[in-house]
């Protein structure tokens, strides 16, 4: 039987699911439940939607602790872990810098970025696991989960599919983050190609994914022109400026980890234009 495919808009990009199985009715119903998970994640994590839970956190966590549901709390805990393990290269608190560099509509400038820098630093994020609350200890601190949100949405969708009994699927968010479970009939895994951003007709690599996620961060994904120079949308939190890397590709056990680490790798000013990282199948042990 042909796999079921659905594509739909979410998180300001396109998501796609490919589900393999024998019962088309069950596959469709499962895909609908998984899509609902992505849409729920978008409503919760969007930095653009005023009604999102993240926006509530951004509005209120500077004034005191804000209680958040477990999925968001766990995601923020993952953000902090990757932030620490990446030496600060992954930092969702760069939100003020995204505006200052012109990625939120208004024109950006180095001067605006310099003024925004004191608000940046995930060490200002206080998480209280017992109370399930989030608090900002830095004045002006704001979070943007664009570097991990698509991956988290895919993880939620995958959980719904597994719960629905679907054993073989490939999901993508924006053609840049992929999550595979099982394999198509007769194959060892789902084949995913990594395009050369400088020459989209050329494949840099072909990857066979099975029970694993892959994320590609590309400097050209979104750009803004600042002082006549085109800048990529991923911010290097250490320098407080758009990252210099070209492309980062990460394989990881979960889509959220892959997403976050590919952002970190690109933001981390690697001397190599293309960076590759494969995390072990088991999640790394958090640093003490």
């Amino acid at each position: 039987m042909e796999p079921l495919r659905i594509d739909f808009p979410a998180m300001r990009t396109e998501f796609g699911f490919v589900l393999a199985g024998e019962d088309p009715r069950r596959l469709r119903a499962a895909a609908e439940e998984a899509r609902a998970e992505v849409e729920a994640a978008e409503r919760e994590l969007s930095a653009f939607s005023l009604g999102s839970l993240l926006n509530k956190v951004n509005r209120e966590a500077g004034a005191g602790p804000v209680r958040v549901p477990a999925p968001l709390f766990e995601l923020l805990a993952l953000c902090r872990r990757v932030h620490e393990e990446s030496g600060g290269a992954f930092d969702p608190s760069v939100a003020p810098l995204l505006g200052a560099w012109g990625f939120r509509g208004a024109a950006g400038s180095a001067a605006a970025a310099a003024a925004a820098r004191p608000a940046v630093g995930l060490d200002g994020l206080a998480l209280d696991p017992a109370a399930g609350t989030v608090r900002f200890r830095r004045p002006g601190m704001q979070l943007d989960l664009g570097g991990i949100g698509k991956g988290d949405a895919l993880d939620r969708a995958a959980a719904a599919l597994v719960e629905a009994g679907v054993g073989a699927f490939l999901l993508h968010g924006g053609h840049s983050t992929f999550l595979a479970r099982g394999a198509p009939p007769g194959q060892r895994g789902w084949r995913v190609g990594v395009r050369d951003p400088a020459d989209p007709g050329r494949l840099l690599a072909g990857v066979e994914l099975r029970d694993r996620a892959l994320s590609v961060s590309d400097r050209r994904g979104r750009t803004a022109v600042v002082a006549g120079e085109e800048r990529g949308h991923i911010i290097d939190p250490v320098r407080g400026a758009p990252a210099a890397g070209e492309l980062a590709v990460v394989a990881a056990p979960s889509a959220a980890e892959a997403d976050a680490w590919s952002t970190a790798l690109l933001a981390g000013a690697s001397p190599h234009p293309v960076s590759w990282l494969a995390l072990p199948a088991a999640p790394p042990v958090p640093s003490p």
Partner: peptide
Amino acid sequence: ESWRAVAP
């Protein structure tokens, strides 16, 4: 949408 769910 299908108005159907999935159950074991």
